[in-house]
Each structure stands twice: as C-alpha cells, then as structure tokens.
C-alpha cells in the first residue's frame, strides 16, 4: 500500500497525527525553555486529537464500514478544553517559577530531586 497513491483516508490523517506527536515529544525533550515544553505538550495533544477526529469521521470511512458516530469529535472537544485548562495551570506555574528564579529554564527546576 502506497500512501501517496491512495485517496486521502484515515491513514493519511494518522500519519500527520504521528508526525505532530513525534514533533511534540521531541520538543518536550529538547527544549529548556518551559514555554517551549508547553508548546510541545500542545503538539502532542493535538496530534492525538487529529487521530480522534479522523477515526470518528464518517466521511473517511469506506462504505459499510463500522462507524463510530460523533464520539471521536466529542473526545477531541474534551481534549481541547482540558488542554486549555492545563495550559492555564502550567502557565501559572511557569509564571511563579519565573518570579522565584528569574528564568524559565526547566533544568533549573531540580530542587525536588531525590
């Protein structure tokens, strides 16, 4: 199966989602800036979101295939809301961290190590 020759289907969306997920993970792992790490988290979440939407869409299903209804879209909406909430909390933590350390370098946040 060659993705490039196939018509656009679920697999293509999943590839895009996987790429976004990988980018996000790499971003989280290599960035020392806390804001960068947060961006990486957003990428990871949205990569997963794409998978949800794609798998839930009836337009991307073959005829007669099993449809998941609108569940995927709803879960995506939930994830967006959760991401927003998480971003708010994470930004507050970052702000506090900045207030205390005058930096947002996550490598400096090692005071709780064992």
């Amino acid at each position: 199966m060659n993705l490039l020759t196939e018509p656009v289907g679920v697999a293509h969306f999943m590839v895009v989602g996987a790429i976004m997920f990988a980018c996000g993970v790499v971003c989280m792992a290599v960035k020392r800036n806390a804001l960068g790490v947060l961006m990486g988290i957003e990428l990871v979440l949205n990569g997963a979101n794409i998978n949800f939407v794609a798998l839930g869409s009836k337009f991307l299903q073959k005829d007669g295939a099993f449809s998941l209804g609108l569940d995927g879209q709803f879960i995506a909406l939930f994830v967006i809301v959760l991401a927003a909430a998480e971003a708010a909390v994470a930004l507050a933590i970052t702000l506090n961290f900045y207030n205390n350390h005058s930096t947002v370098d996550v490598d400096r946040a090692n005071e709780l190590k064992g």
């Binding site: 993970v25 989280m28 792992a29 290599v30 960035k31 020392r32 790490v37 996550v106 490598d107 946040a109 090692n110 005071e111 709780l112 190590k113 064992g114």
Partner: peptide
C-alpha cells in the same frame, strides 16, 4: 536506592516517558 532516579531534570523525565 530508588532515590537516585529522581534526578530533577524535567527533560530526562520526558525521555523516560517516551
């Protein structure tokens, strides 16, 4: 002995997760 795992390096933790 398990204490050493807690390095305090956030990025390392992300790597562990991945």
């Amino acid at each position: 002995s398990l204490k050493a795992v807690q390095t305090g390096k956030l990025r390392q933790y992300v790597m562990f997760i991945v």
